[in-house]
Nucleic acid binder design. Sequence first.
DNA 1: TTTTATAGATTACTTGTGTAACTTATGAAT
DNA 2: ATTCATAAGTTACACAAGTAATCTATAAAA
Lengths: 123, 123
Amino acid sequence: MEEVRIPEGELEVMKVLWEHSPQTLPEIVRNVQSSNPWEAVTVKTMLGRLVRKSFVRQSGSRRSYQYEPLVSKAAALKSAGRQFMDRLFDGAPAAMISFFIRSGELSPAEIQEIGRLIDEMKK
Amino acid sequence: MEEVRIPEGELEVMKVLWEHSPQTLPEIVRNVQSSNPWEAVTVKTMLGRLVRKSFVRQSGSRRSYQYEPLVSKAAALKSAGRQFMDRLFDGAPAAMISFFIRSGELSPAEIQEIGRLIDEMKK
DNA sequence: TTTTATAGATTACTTGTGTAACTTATGAAT
DNA sequence: ATTCATAAGTTACACAAGTAATCTATAAAA
């Protein structure tokens, strides 16, 4: 299993790249800033770290690089989910799901939807 | 909402305190070491940090303190769960649960069990 | 009473992360 | 040809967290 561990801040950059890609630095900066109060230079730092870790690829040439994710959102979610599950629920997915279902944060509609999902899985 | 953020290492100590409490340092050390390859002194560091943050209370007197959690497991799980959900699923519990259900990590028995849970919630 | 084991305190060191300033190079404007 | 924005690179700095060594005090053993 590939260990994909993306810290909070870097994740914000991944999120905008997952929305669509490739994007240039100025685009990324704009998009990240639309939901985070960061300096442009901070966004650049995050992006640089992601590139160094090979979570993002920098292509094209100087002065107008294109950036695109090398880790899919699904892979990152899966990885983060597993870590979360391992840390808090001893790796038992059912335990975790039960916990959230019981946590009382679901609307009736959501409960219905999950019920449908489960019914589908049953087959 | 009380922000309870417990780092990985400290969480290992909380876990043994949640098992049962109060416990003395040597007990905690032994229990933590049963699932982590840590030096006793490292366990003590974690414990100290937890005490400083008031996540654990130290009572009794020197040379034989008793330690007990001030944060319940349920509260910690809930908090961690919310943070996880916010970070990765924009705070939408149903989206997260769907993701895990779809992730294909559930056995048929677990799916049954979750189905039962959902049925109960429906009422 | 002196020694010894050890509970607990203090200090330390490395790496990761959040947050950014400062510097350099270069395409575009004058 | 020179200047100016600005993309990209380099450096910085504080704090968190993992991991622990060293020091101190004291209950128990000799």
